[in-house]
């Protein structure tokens, strides 16, 4: 019987570590394209890990093809990697499309905060008495006040956009369109 030699190669393991580390770093960033690059690196790390899990490379995995004393490579790990690569390809292209759409809409692809979250934060700031926290010592502003400021800015911007859109609409439709509404 052939002895299984499954000690993984240090180079591959190191590569997995570097890929995953860089991937996580990019994933924590804000623009969608960077996040996407992070996902690509991470998925490559995971795929490489699958390859390591399949053991050392050997002869081609076709029965009768390999010499009797050489162990065959594990084809299952490679089949799984192929599947994973195809899936990641599809989803990567989808994220790219999202990033492009975001760029079309906003001129950038940063993922914005949720307005509703800020509304809740604003509500909390209105209801609760401001309390001292560690941030206050540095900026002279509590976290609640900061949340309130951010919320106000968002609302202001949203209102400006809405007004802009209504103006545009009036311009497009003329007086009749405006009257119909």
């Amino acid at each position: 019987m052939i002895v299984l030699e499954n000690t993984p190669s240090a180079v591959l393991l190191l590569a997995v570590g570097v890929l995953c580390g860089a991937g996580v770093y990019l994933l924590l960033d804000r623009p969608l394209t960077r996040v996407l690059l992070g996902i690509v690196l991470l998925s490559n790390g995971a795929n490489l890990m699958l390859l390591v899990a399949g053991g050392r490379a050997g002869a081609s995995p076709v029965v009768g093809n390999a010499p009797a004393d050489v162990r065959m490579s594990d084809p299952l790990a490679q089949a799984m990697i192929l599947t994973a690569i195809v899936i990641t390809l599809a989803l990567t292209s989808f994220v790219l499309a999202l990033a492009y759409r975001s760029w079309q809409l906003h001129g950038h692809d940063e993922v914005a905060d949720d307005e509703e979250d800020r509304r809740v934060a604003r509500q909390a700031a209105d209801n609760a008495p401001a309390y001292e926290d560690s941030d206050a010592a540095e900026t002279g502003e509590t976290l609640d006040e900061e949340a309130a400021t951010v919320y106000d800015q968002v609302v202001e911007r949203a209102e400006r956009l809405r007004a802009q859109r209504e103006r545009d609409e009036r311009d497009q439709h003329g007086p009749q369109g405006g009257g119909a509404r």
């Binding site: 969608l32 994973a84 759409r101 993922v111």
Partner: peptide
């Protein structure tokens, strides 16, 4: 697009964790 970006990145992340788990289990 904003909601979808958050959703797909989070779920992709969990899928990659799952894939890593599969590799280690294998």
């Amino acid at each position: 697009v904003r909601a979808g970006s958050v959703y797909i990145v989070v779920t992709l992340m969990s899928s990659l964790l799952f894939l890593t788990a599969i590799a280690l289990i294998y």
